[in-house]
């Protein structure tokens, strides 16, 4: 086996591990997200649609509106991760293809890397956050930084594809066991809450009447 196909195989195995382990964890909760037994007042589905769209906008979410910097960095970080994963994927399946796309993805990864470092600094500099953070928080941050940096380095031709794939595989190994598993639990948690609030007629909110709603104090 050539080094290239070996690293590709390892990458594939790590991806399977991450996906499989996350799927297994989700499966363990198969009975937990229950339909409301009570007669609904609203639509669970409409609640979920609202929960994953407008409810997440800064106009409705204080974690975003009160913390524009951290929120913005979070968005950029997640976009960067998507871009990096695409770079890794392309490196394995189409090493020669789409140079322009690759350059764009590298740009997004670079911005994501900056955001990632920024969030690390924020965690270290904010006392209550620092006190609350176990090593997992830093490992997760650094693992993502590693992914972002190595895909960027690959695009800048300072890292060979095989090395990128090995590093990415390493990060993927950690995904299901540490905080990064929120990539799956985000959907379960927000989904569960939104479905429930939908059935109860809380999500989506009633038409804006009488003013006042959503205005910050």
């Amino acid at each position: 086996m050539s080094p290239d196909s070996a690293s590709r195989a390892l990458l594939g195995a790590a991806a399977l591990w991450a996906a499989g382990a996350l799927a297994f964890q989700a499966w363990r909760f198969r009975g937990a997200v229950r339909r409301e037994i009570a007669e609904p007042r609203g639509s669970a589905l409409a609640g979920a649609v609202y929960g994953f769209t407008a409810a997440m906008s800064p106009a409705r979410k204080e974690s975003a509106s009160r913390h524009p910097l951290a929120f913005g960095a979070g968005i950029l970080l997640h976009l960067g991760v998507a871009a990096s994963l695409s770079i890794v994927f392309l490196s394995a399946v189409a090493p020669e293809g789409w140079p322009r796309l690759g350059a764009a993805l590298a740009g997004v990864s670079a911005v994501g890397l900056a955001a990632c470092v920024g969030l690390l600094v924020r965690r270290l500099a904010t006392a209550p956050l620092r006190e609350m953070s176990p090593p997992d928080d830093y490992i997760s941050n650094l693992a993502v930084a590693l992914l972002l940096a190595s895909s960027l380095a690959f695009r800048l031709d300072v890292l060979p594809a095989a090395a990128l794939q090995l590093l990415a595989a390493l990060v993927l190994l950690y995904v299901p066991v540490g905080k990064l598993r929120h990539g799956m639990f985000f959907f379960l948690a927000r989904g569960d809450l939104s479905l429930r609030l939908g059935a109860r007629g809380v999500y989506p909110p009633a038409a804006r009447k009488g003013g006042g709603r959503g205005v910050r104090r």
Binding site: Q25, F29, A32, V33, S63, A70, G74, T126, P128, L129, M132, S133, D137, K179, R181, H182, F185, F186, L188, A189, D192, L193
Partner: peptide, 10 residues
Amino acid sequence: IHMSACVRCG
């Protein structure tokens, strides 16, 4: 589910 989802963004 909810216990497993917090990212401690604070």
